[in-house]
Design a binder for these strands. Sequence first.
DNA 1: GCTTACCAGCTTCCATGCAAGTTGCAACGG
DNA 2: CCGTTGCAACTTGCATGGAAGCTGGTAAGC
Lengths: 234, 234
Amino acid sequence: MARAKSARTDDSEKRPSLVDDAYAAMKLAIRNSDFAPGYQASEQEIALRLGMSRTPVHEAAIRLQEDGLVRVLPRRGILICAIAPEDMREIYDVIIALEGQAAELVAGLPETERLRAADELAAHTDTMASAQIDGDLPAWGAADEGFHRALVEQAGNGRLIRIMQTINDQSHRARMLTLRLRQELDASVTEHRRVIDAIREADAAGAHRYAREHRIRARNNLLPLLENFGLRHL
Amino acid sequence: MARAKSARTDDSEKRPSLVDDAYAAMKLAIRNSDFAPGYQASEQEIALRLGMSRTPVHEAAIRLQEDGLVRVLPRRGILICAIAPEDMREIYDVIIALEGQAAELVAGLPETERLRAADELAAHTDTMASAQIDGDLPAWGAADEGFHRALVEQAGNGRLIRIMQTINDQSHRARMLTLRLRQELDASVTEHRRVIDAIREADAAGAHRYAREHRIRARNNLLPLLENFGLRHL
DNA sequence: GCTTACCAGCTTCCATGCAAGTTGCAACGG
DNA sequence: CCGTTGCAACTTGCATGGAAGCTGGTAAGC
């Protein structure tokens, strides 16, 4: 891993800065639950672990706080945020609204791009279908994530992309945890294809509605799971 | 609640930190165009002006960059971001989606809160109507802003509120500039009332659609204004 | 036994120093 | 006269130290 590219806004080409490294490393650690939610780390400790001084860690923590992944407690350390069912409800409200909008935008693209976008979305969905047959849940999850990311990215709205990225980072752990509990994998494939068809036909309203309904159904499946399993925070 | 505090995430009560001061001051300066877009300031200079050292200014700049208000150029200073018509298109996509969702959520509230919310929204709209009669454009703009902020806040979704806050900060200057150019003030009042009525009747779908259509029409009015006036960046 | 006050240790906040990178201009060579 | 090179000034990146604040445990007092 010579280059931990990225994680920045998006356009600045490349600049290997310690702050960026710290940001990427901490974000990854949170994603993988190396930093468990509720864990309270000191900047000193993280700095030591990453082999840098406290300053870049501190600045990365500010960014992560802005992303809603951690909270910097005034003089007590960095608290890894937990996600409660209530948070997931909030997150889904945002996803439902923005992904519907994204689907509508993609359906409104000029024909060439629109069909190319539809093909990419179809590819992800096909991967989901075969992963389901193989019983490969992680692959299914990755392809599902790919579909939704592609849908938003094809909309070509940088702010939309950024917001969805942030909200996805927040809910990533919950999605991973509940992946194995979900029973309605084929419904997702069917619904994805409905969205794709609407996009192909430039049916903006339909694409919006189908994408929206897909996410609403997913939420209605997921929220009870979280609450029944007593996952107060994860 | 008379609370001018703020600018922080939301829940931490109060802590007068220099970073917060710097963040608030810079944000305000950008809002008021004391820092004009395109202006490139050095952290040193801002630190001097605010009577603090570079560190808190630097950290505040990171937050502002996360908010999309400035760009921190690697070793050249802080650049105040300009807003192009293309940015406004992006911003409106987000607003259209999220405010529609917010209206739907408000319409889904239990009756007591729902009616209280509707009353508050109606108050703002009434203020707009009378400001229009008086020809008081700034008051009209403030009441309009109040309506939309209240709509989002009543939805009770912290993430929604935060995102809309950020996006509003980005577009504030553009709204101020174009306020005097807009001719369709009464349409806004009518459309607001349509949303309010739907909320009163717990008509979630209607509230969503009307709020959405209101913002779509506003966008279709605003974008040509920006482009015809050759406002490449503002 | 229970409450309260205090203190030691830990943590961040912020100022500042040094080094590295960028810019613009001036001087030099063609 | 024009293009190029080098230098000087200025900028931030990052490290580090001192100061202030918070926490938890302990000991004193009731």
